[in-house]
Amino acid sequence: MTEPLFSVRGLKVALPDMTRKPLIGRAPLAEILKGLDFDLPKGLITGIVGESGSGKSTLGRALVRLLEPSAGAITFEGRDIAHLSEAELRPLRRDLQMIFQDPMSSLNPRHTIFNIIAAPLRQNGLGDRLKERVAEALQRVGLPQSFAARYRHELSGGQRQRVGIARALALSPKFVLADEIVSGLDVSTQAQILTLLEKLAAEMGLTVAFISHDLSVIRRLCQQVIVMREGRIVEAGATDALFDNPKEAYTRDLLAAIPLPEIDPDWLRPKAPA
């Protein structure tokens, strides 16, 4: 068994519930994550799957400490980072990188691709040999060097997502959070991005949390899976075992709801009443 990069115990996150916010005063807190226990083994890609409202994105944001948990421990390389201050987190930021769903909104429209990739390098004390490092980052994700001078609107969706990956990996992080990174892309582009992430994760020995609503994508990419629902873990395990023999009814329902690209006249028939 590989030793875990992350070890999470009793993780709870509560966030202000803006739908119940009174006109004056604070919004009451709603518990989004209701006590999670899991490990992320070093060098593996772990899929985190769930429908909207399952808390999967909140979980990702807690792991990279964009959020502070309300309870529980997040042990990263043997150290509990759940309640570290922003100053204490600073040296860890380089190791905890993220790629988001929509590269259009996560890339600054007024910066060249060069500056977008260079900014985190500068912030993390890697400002020397900038040109070289950016060139290397572009090459790694299969983009031509000429792209350094371009702006985000000059790029296709797939190319933008490559820039997102280049930026995150330029810092040689230990951990990458990938939150729905292929959701907005066409299937042909999806396949390219997944293949790229798979290759780079293996080459660089990355530990990845791959958040997605798409079980088909998760099966292809991830070595283990966590299925979430309403802030709790429903089921977790090695990918093949979980897909071939799902233990929980909810996991089975999720799988059965995926419309596979094959003819099945029974698929749309209403379920016979139990």
Binding site: V187, S188, Q190, A191, Q192, L194, T195, D214, L215, S216, V217, I218, R219, R220, F243, L255, I258, L260, P261
Partner: peptide, 20 residues
């Protein structure tokens, strides 16, 4: 044919998600 090969299928992960 390429579009079909690119479409993800959890039942057949390695025959699906092929780049065009």
């Amino acid at each position: 044919r390429a579009l079909m090969a690119a479409t993800p299928r959890y039942t057949d992960p390695y025959a699906s998600l092929k780049p065009v």
